[in-house]
Amino acid sequence: MVNEFKQFIMKGNIVDLAVAVIIGGAFGKIVTSLVNDILMPVIGFLLGRINFASLKIVITEATGSVPEAAIRYGAFIQSIVDFLIISLAIFFMLKVLMKLRKKKEEEPIAPESPPEPSNEEILLTEIRDILKSR
């Protein structure tokens, strides 16, 4: 069972998937930072100095040790912008990959030249030619 597990883990697809998940997680953090720290402040400034992170509808105020219950639609808007940017980046990456794959498929395959005859074949051919000439 251990050997089967090793074979399963060492397959190229599993290793590629693991790398993709790690890179995807890091990419998600970068996009989240881009949206939260760069884009949303600029968009908020252009829309009249709105801080999207603080946009919410308070259902019940905080009392004592009970926190407030609120619908934080500003954070939801930021998550939508995150999703759109990640989707756009994936779309462009897939578009480039498909274009590269299409080019690779379109490349003409050069016909293979016949392999060089071995020394034995050359000698046998010479012997045949000598016997024919007699």
Score class of each variant (00 low, 15 high):
Ser65His: 09
Ser113Met: 11
Gly64Val: 01
Leu100His: 07
Asn3Trp: 02
Gln78Leu: 06
Pro41Asn: 09
Leu34Phe: 15
Pro117Glu: 04
Asp16Arg: 08
Val42Glu: 13
Pro41Ser: 04
Thr63Ser: 13
Leu39Ala: 13
Ile14Lys: 02
Lys29Trp: 10
Val31Lys: 08
Thr63Phe: 10
Ile130Gly: 06
Phe5Met: 08
Phe83Ala: 15
Leu124Asp: 15
Ala18Arg: 01
Ser87Tyr: 14
Ala110Ile: 09
Phe52Ser: 05
Ser65Leu: 04
Glu126Trp: 03
Arg128Val: 08
Ser133Lys: 11
Leu46Gln: 09
Ala70Thr: 01
Lys11Asn: 13
Arg128Asn: 12
Pro67Thr: 06
Pro115Ser: 11
Lys99Asn: 12
Met93Glu: 08
Val19Ile: 01
Pro115Ile: 00
Leu46Arg: 03
Tyr73Trp: 10
Ile80Trp: 06
Val96Gly: 02
Ile85His: 04
Glu4Asp: 12
Phe92Arg: 06
Ile109Gln: 15
Lys99His: 15
Pro108Ser: 03
Gly24Phe: 06
Met40Gly: 02
Ala26Arg: 06
Val58Cys: 05
Val35Asn: 07
Lys132Arg: 12
Glu112Lys: 14
Asp129Ser: 09
Glu120Phe: 03
Lys56Leu: 02
Leu34Cys: 03
Asp82Arg: 12
Glu121Ser: 04
Ile30Pro: 02
Arg134Asn: 10
Leu123Lys: 14
Glu107Ala: 13
Ala110Glu: 15
Phe8Arg: 09
Val96Lys: 11
Glu4Tyr: 10
